[in-house]
Write a protein that binds this DNA or RNA. Structure first.
Length: 412
RNA sequence: GCGGGCAUAGCUCAGUAGGUUAGAGCGCCAGAUUGUGGCUCUGGAGGUCGCCGGUUCGAUCCCGGUUGCUCGCCCCA
Protein backbone atom coordinates (compact mmCIF):
# COMPACT_ATOMS: atom_id res chain seq x y z
CA UNK A 1 0.00 0.00 0.00
CA UNK A 2 1.12 3.52 -0.66
CA UNK A 3 2.53 5.42 2.26
CA UNK A 4 2.61 8.76 0.47
CA UNK A 5 -0.88 10.09 0.04
CA UNK A 6 -2.18 13.49 -0.89
CA UNK A 7 -3.16 15.54 2.15
CA UNK A 8 -6.66 14.73 3.40
CA UNK A 9 -9.28 16.55 1.42
CA UNK A 10 -7.00 17.16 -1.56
CA UNK A 11 -6.82 15.19 -4.79
CA UNK A 12 -4.61 14.73 -7.79
CA UNK A 13 -6.69 15.70 -10.79
CA UNK A 14 -6.21 13.62 -13.89
CA UNK A 15 -8.02 12.41 -16.99
CA UNK A 16 -11.80 12.57 -17.00
CA UNK A 17 -12.05 14.46 -13.69
CA UNK A 18 -9.70 17.15 -14.92
CA UNK A 19 -11.50 17.42 -18.26
CA UNK A 20 -14.81 17.87 -16.47
CA UNK A 21 -13.43 20.67 -14.34
CA UNK A 22 -11.76 22.39 -17.27
CA UNK A 23 -15.00 22.25 -19.20
CA UNK A 24 -16.83 23.91 -16.31
CA UNK A 25 -14.24 26.67 -16.11
CA UNK A 26 -14.02 27.23 -19.87
CA UNK A 27 -17.78 27.41 -20.25
CA UNK A 28 -18.05 29.94 -17.44
CA UNK A 29 -15.14 31.96 -18.78
CA UNK A 30 -16.67 32.25 -22.24
CA UNK A 31 -20.06 33.31 -21.00
CA UNK A 32 -18.65 35.76 -18.48
CA UNK A 33 -16.64 37.32 -21.27
CA UNK A 34 -19.80 37.60 -23.35
CA UNK A 35 -21.34 39.56 -20.47
CA UNK A 36 -18.41 41.95 -20.37
CA UNK A 37 -16.63 40.56 -17.33
CA UNK A 38 -12.86 40.68 -17.28
CA UNK A 39 -10.88 37.74 -16.05
CA UNK A 40 -8.60 38.35 -13.10
CA UNK A 41 -6.40 36.15 -10.97
CA UNK A 42 -5.39 37.13 -7.47
CA UNK A 43 -2.85 35.44 -5.15
CA UNK A 44 -4.04 32.32 -3.37
CA UNK A 45 -2.84 33.74 -0.06
CA UNK A 46 -3.46 37.09 1.53
CA UNK A 47 -2.93 38.78 4.87
CA UNK A 48 -5.23 36.93 7.24
CA UNK A 49 -7.20 40.08 8.13
CA UNK A 50 -8.44 40.33 4.55
CA UNK A 51 -10.73 37.41 5.38
CA UNK A 52 -11.01 37.66 9.15
CA UNK A 53 -12.53 41.14 9.16
CA UNK A 54 -15.30 40.90 6.58
CA UNK A 55 -16.28 37.30 7.31
CA UNK A 56 -16.47 37.93 11.06
CA UNK A 57 -14.07 36.55 13.63
CA UNK A 58 -16.75 34.27 15.05
CA UNK A 59 -17.74 32.75 11.72
CA UNK A 60 -16.84 29.10 11.26
CA UNK A 61 -14.83 29.89 8.16
CA UNK A 62 -12.51 32.16 10.10
CA UNK A 63 -12.53 30.60 13.55
CA UNK A 64 -12.00 26.99 12.59
CA UNK A 65 -11.60 26.49 8.87
CA UNK A 66 -8.98 28.96 7.69
CA UNK A 67 -5.46 27.81 6.92
CA UNK A 68 -3.45 30.48 8.71
CA UNK A 69 0.30 30.61 9.00
CA UNK A 70 3.08 32.98 9.93
CA UNK A 71 5.61 33.46 7.17
CA UNK A 72 9.33 33.96 7.66
CA UNK A 73 8.88 37.70 7.84
CA UNK A 74 6.40 37.34 10.70
CA UNK A 75 3.28 38.22 8.71
CA UNK A 76 0.01 36.44 9.45
CA UNK A 77 -1.13 34.99 6.15
CA UNK A 78 -4.08 32.85 5.15
CA UNK A 79 -4.77 30.56 2.22
CA UNK A 80 -7.87 32.12 0.73
CA UNK A 81 -11.06 30.41 1.95
CA UNK A 82 -13.22 32.34 -0.54
CA UNK A 83 -12.77 34.73 -3.40
CA UNK A 84 -14.98 37.72 -2.67
CA UNK A 85 -12.85 39.33 0.04
CA UNK A 86 -9.72 38.77 -2.04
CA UNK A 87 -11.33 40.43 -5.06
CA UNK A 88 -12.32 43.39 -2.90
CA UNK A 89 -8.81 43.69 -1.54
CA UNK A 90 -7.45 43.74 -5.10
CA UNK A 91 -9.96 46.45 -5.92
CA UNK A 92 -8.84 48.55 -2.97
CA UNK A 93 -5.23 47.95 -3.97
CA UNK A 94 -6.02 49.66 -7.24
CA UNK A 95 -5.75 46.68 -9.52
CA UNK A 96 -8.78 47.51 -11.61
CA UNK A 97 -8.53 51.23 -12.23
CA UNK A 98 -11.05 53.88 -11.32
CA UNK A 99 -13.90 53.49 -13.77
CA UNK A 100 -16.88 51.97 -12.02
CA UNK A 101 -18.44 49.52 -12.06
CA UNK A 102 -15.86 46.78 -12.57
CA UNK A 103 -17.11 43.36 -13.57
CA UNK A 104 -14.82 40.50 -12.64
CA UNK A 105 -14.50 36.81 -13.39
CA UNK A 106 -12.07 34.52 -11.61
CA UNK A 107 -11.51 30.82 -11.05
CA UNK A 108 -9.10 28.96 -8.85
CA UNK A 109 -8.44 26.96 -5.70
CA UNK A 110 -9.83 27.81 -2.25
CA UNK A 111 -8.84 26.22 1.04
CA UNK A 112 -10.84 25.34 4.12
CA UNK A 113 -9.89 22.99 6.92
CA UNK A 114 -13.04 20.86 7.12
CA UNK A 115 -14.01 17.20 7.34
CA UNK A 116 -14.20 16.14 3.71
CA UNK A 117 -17.39 14.59 2.40
CA UNK A 118 -19.21 14.39 -0.90
CA UNK A 119 -18.82 17.73 -2.67
CA UNK A 120 -16.62 19.11 0.07
CA UNK A 121 -12.84 19.23 0.05
CA UNK A 122 -10.02 21.04 1.80
CA UNK A 123 -8.67 22.30 -1.47
CA UNK A 124 -11.62 22.95 -3.74
CA UNK A 125 -12.15 25.17 -6.73
CA UNK A 126 -14.54 27.99 -7.36
CA UNK A 127 -15.70 30.14 -10.19
CA UNK A 128 -16.26 33.66 -8.96
CA UNK A 129 -18.21 36.60 -10.34
CA UNK A 130 -18.18 40.06 -8.78
CA UNK A 131 -19.53 43.46 -9.77
CA UNK A 132 -18.00 46.27 -7.76
CA UNK A 133 -19.34 49.81 -7.70
CA UNK A 134 -22.91 49.16 -8.83
CA UNK A 135 -25.68 49.85 -6.33
CA UNK A 136 -28.45 49.28 -8.88
CA UNK A 137 -30.73 46.26 -8.55
CA UNK A 138 -30.24 45.58 -12.24
CA UNK A 139 -26.67 44.60 -11.38
CA UNK A 140 -28.12 41.91 -9.11
CA UNK A 141 -30.31 40.79 -11.97
CA UNK A 142 -27.44 40.56 -14.42
CA UNK A 143 -25.22 38.70 -11.98
CA UNK A 144 -27.92 36.13 -11.28
CA UNK A 145 -28.73 35.84 -14.99
CA UNK A 146 -25.08 35.19 -15.75
CA UNK A 147 -25.09 32.36 -13.26
CA UNK A 148 -28.26 30.91 -14.72
CA UNK A 149 -26.86 31.05 -18.26
CA UNK A 150 -23.70 29.26 -17.23
CA UNK A 151 -25.72 26.50 -15.60
CA UNK A 152 -27.80 26.23 -18.77
CA UNK A 153 -24.72 26.06 -20.97
CA UNK A 154 -23.35 23.28 -18.79
CA UNK A 155 -26.59 21.37 -19.27
CA UNK A 156 -27.31 21.18 -15.55
CA UNK A 157 -30.14 23.74 -15.41
CA UNK A 158 -32.77 21.03 -15.01
CA UNK A 159 -31.00 19.68 -11.94
CA UNK A 160 -30.95 23.01 -10.22
CA UNK A 161 -33.43 25.49 -8.74
CA UNK A 162 -32.93 29.15 -7.92
CA UNK A 163 -33.92 30.40 -4.49
CA UNK A 164 -33.99 34.09 -3.80
CA UNK A 165 -34.30 36.26 -0.73
CA UNK A 166 -33.47 39.68 0.57
CA UNK A 167 -31.97 40.59 3.91
CA UNK A 168 -32.85 44.22 3.40
CA UNK A 169 -30.50 47.12 3.95
CA UNK A 170 -28.44 47.27 7.15
CA UNK A 171 -31.11 49.25 9.00
CA UNK A 172 -33.88 46.79 8.15
CA UNK A 173 -31.65 43.84 8.80
CA UNK A 174 -30.71 45.15 12.23
CA UNK A 175 -34.33 45.84 13.17
CA UNK A 176 -35.34 42.37 12.13
CA UNK A 177 -32.45 40.79 13.90
CA UNK A 178 -33.47 42.36 17.20
CA UNK A 179 -37.03 41.18 16.77
CA UNK A 180 -35.91 37.67 15.89
CA UNK A 181 -33.54 37.43 18.84
CA UNK A 182 -36.30 38.56 21.17
CA UNK A 183 -38.65 35.92 19.78
CA UNK A 184 -36.10 33.11 19.85
CA UNK A 185 -34.96 34.00 23.35
CA UNK A 186 -38.49 33.25 24.55
CA UNK A 187 -38.21 29.76 23.07
CA UNK A 188 -34.58 29.19 23.95
CA UNK A 189 -35.23 26.12 26.08
CA UNK A 190 -36.99 24.35 23.22
CA UNK A 191 -34.33 25.10 20.62
CA UNK A 192 -31.80 22.45 19.58
CA UNK A 193 -28.34 22.73 21.08
CA UNK A 194 -26.97 23.90 17.74
CA UNK A 195 -29.57 26.61 17.46
CA UNK A 196 -28.92 27.82 21.00
CA UNK A 197 -25.34 28.56 19.98
CA UNK A 198 -26.58 30.02 16.68
CA UNK A 199 -28.73 32.36 18.72
CA UNK A 200 -25.55 33.71 20.34
CA UNK A 201 -23.37 33.82 17.25
CA UNK A 202 -25.53 34.25 14.19
CA UNK A 203 -29.25 34.25 15.02
CA UNK A 204 -30.39 34.46 11.40
CA UNK A 205 -28.99 30.99 10.86
CA UNK A 206 -31.65 29.52 13.11
CA UNK A 207 -34.08 30.23 10.28
CA UNK A 208 -32.69 27.49 8.06
CA UNK A 209 -32.05 24.92 10.79
CA UNK A 210 -32.70 21.33 9.73
CA UNK A 211 -33.91 20.35 13.18
CA UNK A 212 -37.65 19.62 13.25
CA UNK A 213 -38.26 21.22 16.62
CA UNK A 214 -36.47 24.33 15.44
CA UNK A 215 -38.56 24.40 12.30
CA UNK A 216 -41.76 24.43 14.31
CA UNK A 217 -40.51 27.40 16.32
CA UNK A 218 -39.22 29.15 13.22
CA UNK A 219 -42.57 28.75 11.49
CA UNK A 220 -44.05 31.16 14.02
CA UNK A 221 -41.13 33.55 13.99
CA UNK A 222 -41.47 37.13 12.78
CA UNK A 223 -40.93 37.50 9.04
CA UNK A 224 -37.99 39.34 7.63
CA UNK A 225 -39.84 41.33 5.00
CA UNK A 226 -42.28 42.84 7.48
CA UNK A 227 -39.27 44.75 8.86
CA UNK A 228 -38.20 46.10 5.47
CA UNK A 229 -38.20 49.85 5.07
CA UNK A 230 -39.45 51.29 1.80
CA UNK A 231 -36.08 51.32 0.16
CA UNK A 232 -35.42 47.66 0.93
CA UNK A 233 -38.82 46.68 -0.36
CA UNK A 234 -38.38 48.62 -3.57
CA UNK A 235 -34.95 47.14 -4.14
CA UNK A 236 -36.16 43.58 -3.77
CA UNK A 237 -39.15 44.28 -6.01
CA UNK A 238 -36.88 45.56 -8.77
CA UNK A 239 -34.66 42.50 -8.59
CA UNK A 240 -37.68 40.22 -8.87
CA UNK A 241 -39.13 42.24 -11.75
CA UNK A 242 -35.80 42.08 -13.57
CA UNK A 243 -35.60 38.32 -13.26
CA UNK A 244 -39.15 37.99 -14.55
CA UNK A 245 -38.28 40.19 -17.51
CA UNK A 246 -35.39 37.88 -18.39
CA UNK A 247 -37.50 34.76 -17.94
CA UNK A 248 -35.43 33.43 -15.06
CA UNK A 249 -37.52 31.27 -12.77
CA UNK A 250 -37.01 31.49 -9.02
CA UNK A 251 -38.80 30.91 -5.77
CA UNK A 252 -38.58 33.32 -2.89
CA UNK A 253 -37.33 31.56 0.21
CA UNK A 254 -37.74 33.94 3.16
CA UNK A 255 -35.55 31.65 5.26
CA UNK A 256 -32.61 31.73 2.90
CA UNK A 257 -29.91 33.35 5.01
CA UNK A 258 -26.39 33.24 3.71
CA UNK A 259 -23.78 32.40 6.29
CA UNK A 260 -21.34 35.21 5.89
CA UNK A 261 -21.72 38.45 7.76
CA UNK A 262 -21.21 40.82 4.91
CA UNK A 263 -24.41 40.25 2.97
CA UNK A 264 -27.12 42.89 2.55
CA UNK A 265 -30.19 42.99 0.32
CA UNK A 266 -30.20 40.21 -2.28
CA UNK A 267 -29.14 36.69 -1.44
CA UNK A 268 -29.59 33.69 -3.72
CA UNK A 269 -28.66 30.07 -4.14
CA UNK A 270 -28.87 27.60 -6.97
CA UNK A 271 -29.35 24.23 -5.31
CA UNK A 272 -29.70 20.63 -6.40
CA UNK A 273 -30.88 17.45 -4.76
CA UNK A 274 -28.51 15.35 -6.87
CA UNK A 275 -25.40 15.77 -4.76
CA UNK A 276 -26.35 14.50 -1.33
CA UNK A 277 -25.96 16.87 1.57
CA UNK A 278 -24.05 19.54 -0.32
CA UNK A 279 -26.84 20.85 -2.48
CA UNK A 280 -25.59 24.39 -3.04
CA UNK A 281 -23.91 24.69 -6.39
CA UNK A 282 -23.76 28.43 -6.96
CA UNK A 283 -24.55 31.07 -4.39
CA UNK A 284 -23.97 34.69 -3.55
CA UNK A 285 -25.49 38.01 -2.78
CA UNK A 286 -25.00 41.71 -2.32
CA UNK A 287 -22.38 43.02 0.07
CA UNK A 288 -22.53 46.79 0.06
CA UNK A 289 -20.54 47.16 3.26
CA UNK A 290 -17.66 44.82 2.59
CA UNK A 291 -15.19 47.10 0.86
CA UNK A 292 -15.71 49.76 3.49
CA UNK A 293 -15.21 47.17 6.19
CA UNK A 294 -11.84 46.33 4.65
CA UNK A 295 -10.80 49.96 4.85
CA UNK A 296 -11.60 50.96 1.28
CA UNK A 297 -13.98 53.65 0.00
CA UNK A 298 -17.65 52.83 0.52
CA UNK A 299 -18.38 50.80 -2.60
CA UNK A 300 -21.31 48.50 -3.21
CA UNK A 301 -20.77 44.99 -4.53
CA UNK A 302 -22.66 41.95 -5.68
CA UNK A 303 -21.39 38.56 -6.74
CA UNK A 304 -21.44 34.80 -6.43
CA UNK A 305 -19.22 31.78 -6.22
CA UNK A 306 -19.84 28.37 -7.74
CA UNK A 307 -18.25 25.08 -6.68
CA UNK A 308 -16.38 23.64 -9.65
CA UNK A 309 -16.23 20.11 -8.21
CA UNK A 310 -19.95 20.15 -7.53
CA UNK A 311 -20.73 21.34 -11.05
CA UNK A 312 -18.33 18.80 -12.53
CA UNK A 313 -20.19 16.03 -10.70
CA UNK A 314 -23.49 17.22 -12.17
CA UNK A 315 -22.21 17.07 -15.75
CA UNK A 316 -24.03 14.27 -17.53
CA UNK A 317 -21.02 13.28 -19.60
CA UNK A 318 -17.34 14.03 -19.51
CA UNK A 319 -15.81 15.91 -22.42
CA UNK A 320 -13.74 13.71 -24.73
CA UNK A 321 -10.01 14.11 -24.85
CA UNK A 322 -8.35 14.88 -28.17
CA UNK A 323 -7.74 11.81 -30.31
CA UNK A 324 -4.12 11.70 -31.40
CA UNK A 325 -2.53 10.39 -34.54
CA UNK A 326 0.27 8.02 -33.54
CA UNK A 327 3.41 7.73 -35.61
CA UNK A 328 5.05 4.31 -35.54
CA UNK A 329 8.51 3.64 -36.93
CA UNK A 330 8.94 0.16 -38.33
CA UNK A 331 12.47 -0.88 -37.53
CA UNK A 332 15.26 1.23 -36.02
CA UNK A 333 16.37 2.62 -39.37
CA UNK A 334 13.20 4.69 -39.75
CA UNK A 335 13.03 6.12 -36.22
CA UNK A 336 14.41 9.53 -37.08
CA UNK A 337 12.31 9.83 -40.20
CA UNK A 338 9.23 8.90 -38.17
CA UNK A 339 10.03 11.46 -35.50
CA UNK A 340 10.51 14.08 -38.21
CA UNK A 341 7.12 13.14 -39.68
CA UNK A 342 5.53 13.58 -36.26
CA UNK A 343 7.06 17.05 -35.98
CA UNK A 344 5.83 17.99 -39.42
CA UNK A 345 2.27 16.97 -38.61
CA UNK A 346 2.35 18.77 -35.27
CA UNK A 347 3.47 21.92 -37.03
CA UNK A 348 0.44 21.50 -39.29
CA UNK A 349 -1.80 21.44 -36.22
CA UNK A 350 -2.43 17.74 -35.70
CA UNK A 351 -2.38 16.10 -32.29
CA UNK A 352 0.43 13.62 -32.72
CA UNK A 353 1.94 11.17 -30.28
CA UNK A 354 5.19 9.34 -30.73
CA UNK A 355 6.02 6.40 -28.47
CA UNK A 356 9.69 6.02 -27.69
CA UNK A 357 10.03 2.27 -27.70
CA UNK A 358 8.42 -1.06 -28.39
CA UNK A 359 7.75 -3.36 -31.28
CA UNK A 360 5.16 -2.45 -33.86
CA UNK A 361 2.51 -4.57 -32.18
CA UNK A 362 3.07 -2.99 -28.79
CA UNK A 363 3.01 0.47 -30.26
CA UNK A 364 -0.25 -0.20 -32.09
CA UNK A 365 -1.83 -1.59 -28.97
CA UNK A 366 -0.80 1.45 -27.05
CA UNK A 367 -2.10 3.73 -29.79
CA UNK A 368 -5.50 2.04 -29.68
CA UNK A 369 -5.61 2.44 -25.90
CA UNK A 370 -4.92 6.14 -26.25
CA UNK A 371 -7.97 6.40 -28.45
CA UNK A 372 -5.97 7.19 -31.60
CA UNK A 373 -7.96 7.17 -34.81
CA UNK A 374 -4.97 6.59 -37.09
CA UNK A 375 -1.57 5.05 -36.79
CA UNK A 376 1.00 6.12 -39.35
CA UNK A 377 3.52 3.37 -40.10
CA UNK A 378 6.84 4.30 -41.58
CA UNK A 379 9.46 1.69 -42.43
CA UNK A 380 12.36 1.43 -44.81
CA UNK A 381 10.12 0.28 -47.66
CA UNK A 382 7.81 3.24 -47.27
CA UNK A 383 10.73 5.61 -46.92
CA UNK A 384 12.20 4.36 -50.17
CA UNK A 385 8.87 4.85 -51.95
CA UNK A 386 8.04 8.18 -50.35
CA UNK A 387 4.93 6.76 -48.73
CA UNK A 388 3.36 6.36 -45.32
CA UNK A 389 1.04 3.53 -44.32
CA UNK A 390 -2.13 5.00 -42.81
CA UNK A 391 -3.81 2.46 -40.57
CA UNK A 392 -7.37 3.15 -39.45
CA UNK A 393 -7.47 1.74 -35.94
CA UNK A 394 -11.24 1.56 -35.86
CA UNK A 395 -11.76 -0.19 -39.19
CA UNK A 396 -8.58 -2.21 -39.11
CA UNK A 397 -7.90 -1.30 -42.72
CA UNK A 398 -4.72 0.34 -43.95
CA UNK A 399 -3.35 1.76 -47.15
CA UNK A 400 -0.12 3.23 -48.43
CA UNK A 401 -0.41 6.95 -49.07
CA UNK A 402 2.15 9.16 -50.82
CA UNK A 403 3.72 11.69 -48.44
CA UNK A 404 2.42 14.48 -50.66
CA UNK A 405 -1.23 13.56 -50.09
CA UNK A 406 -0.92 12.61 -46.42
CA UNK A 407 -2.31 15.92 -45.16
CA UNK A 408 -5.42 15.58 -47.30
CA UNK A 409 -5.86 11.95 -46.21
CA UNK A 410 -5.74 12.89 -42.51
CA UNK A 411 -8.11 15.80 -43.02
CA UNK A 412 -10.73 13.45 -44.45
C1' G B 1 -15.18 19.11 16.79
C1' C B 2 -19.26 14.86 16.77
C1' G B 3 -21.60 10.23 14.60
C1' G B 4 -22.28 5.87 10.93
C1' G B 5 -20.10 2.55 7.13
C1' C B 6 -15.83 0.44 4.90
C1' A B 7 -10.37 -1.29 4.51
C1' U B 8 -7.91 -8.49 0.76
C1' A B 9 -3.40 -7.86 -6.20
C1' G B 10 -2.71 -1.76 -10.31
C1' C B 11 -8.67 -1.67 -10.54
C1' U B 12 -13.59 -4.00 -9.15
C1' C B 13 -14.56 -7.57 -5.68
C1' A B 14 -14.99 -12.88 -3.68
C1' G B 15 -13.21 -15.89 0.43
C1' U B 16 -11.79 -18.68 4.90
C1' A B 17 -18.16 -21.57 10.62
C1' G B 18 -9.94 -19.44 12.94
C1' G B 19 -5.98 -24.45 10.13
C1' U B 20 -0.49 -25.95 5.61
C1' U B 21 0.88 -22.97 -1.00
C1' A B 22 -5.31 -16.41 -0.12
C1' G B 23 -8.76 -16.48 -5.26
C1' A B 24 -11.69 -14.45 -9.74
C1' G B 25 -12.59 -10.86 -13.58
C1' C B 26 -10.29 -6.81 -15.74
C1' G B 27 -5.45 -4.66 -16.35
C1' C B 28 0.06 -5.49 -16.84
C1' C B 29 4.42 -8.46 -19.02
C1' A B 30 5.95 -12.41 -22.44
C1' G B 31 4.98 -16.07 -26.26
C1' A B 32 1.85 -18.40 -30.33
C1' U B 33 2.36 -14.15 -34.75
C1' U B 34 11.28 -11.98 -35.72
C1' G B 35 6.62 -5.15 -40.16
C1' U B 36 0.57 -4.89 -37.37
C1' G B 37 -3.56 -3.44 -31.89
C1' G B 38 -8.64 -4.92 -30.98
C1' C B 39 -10.59 -11.76 -31.07
C1' U B 40 -8.44 -16.52 -29.31
C1' C B 41 -4.93 -19.67 -26.75
C1' U B 42 -0.54 -20.50 -23.42
C1' G B 43 2.65 -18.91 -19.68
C1' G B 44 4.35 -15.11 -16.10
C1' A B 45 4.87 -11.04 -12.63
C1' G B 46 2.16 -8.79 -8.85
C1' G B 47 -0.40 -9.52 -1.83
C1' U B 48 3.64 -7.77 5.27
C1' C B 49 -5.21 -9.54 3.69
C1' G B 50 -4.23 -0.87 6.29
C1' C B 51 -1.17 -0.58 11.01
C1' C B 52 -0.36 -1.89 16.43
C1' G B 53 -1.76 -4.94 20.30
C1' G B 54 -4.96 -8.90 22.62
C1' U B 55 -7.46 -13.87 22.74
C1' U B 56 -5.80 -18.74 20.74
C1' C B 57 -1.62 -24.40 19.76
C1' G B 58 -2.64 -21.29 15.39
C1' A B 59 -5.64 -14.79 13.38
C1' U B 60 -6.65 -12.09 6.82
C1' C B 61 -11.09 -13.96 9.77
C1' C B 62 -12.74 -12.93 16.74
C1' C B 63 -11.76 -8.52 20.33
C1' G B 64 -9.52 -3.57 21.44
C1' G B 65 -6.97 0.55 19.71
C1' U B 66 -5.12 3.38 15.65
C1' U B 67 -4.73 5.38 10.71
C1' G B 68 -6.94 6.09 6.05
C1' C B 69 -11.14 6.42 2.89
C1' U B 70 -16.25 7.42 2.68
C1' C B 71 -21.19 9.25 4.05
C1' G B 72 -23.79 12.39 7.46
C1' C B 73 -24.00 16.56 11.61
C1' C B 74 -21.98 21.54 12.22
C1' C B 75 -20.73 24.90 8.43
C1' C B 76 -20.45 25.92 3.43
C1' A B 77 -19.35 26.33 -3.04
Amino acid sequence: MTSLRPVRGTHDLVGEDLRRQRHVIETARQIAERYGYQEVSTPIFEFAEVFARPLGETSDVVSKEMYVFTDRGGDQLALRPEYTAAMCRAFISGAFGQALPVKLFGAGPMFRYERPQKGRLRQFHQIDIEVLGAAEPLADVEVIALGARILQALGVADEVALELNSLGDPVSRQAYRSALVAYLADHRANLSADSQTRLERNPLRVLDSKDEGDRAIVAEAPLLDTYFNEESQAFFAEVKAGLHALGIAFTVNPKLVRGLDYYTHTTFEFTTTALGAQGTVLAGGRYDGLIGMLGGPQTPGIGWAAGIERLAMLLATAPESARPVVVVPVGPASELAALALAEELRAAGHVVDYGFRGKVGQRLKRAAQQGARYALLLGEDELARGEVVVRDLEQGAQEAVPRSSLAARLAG
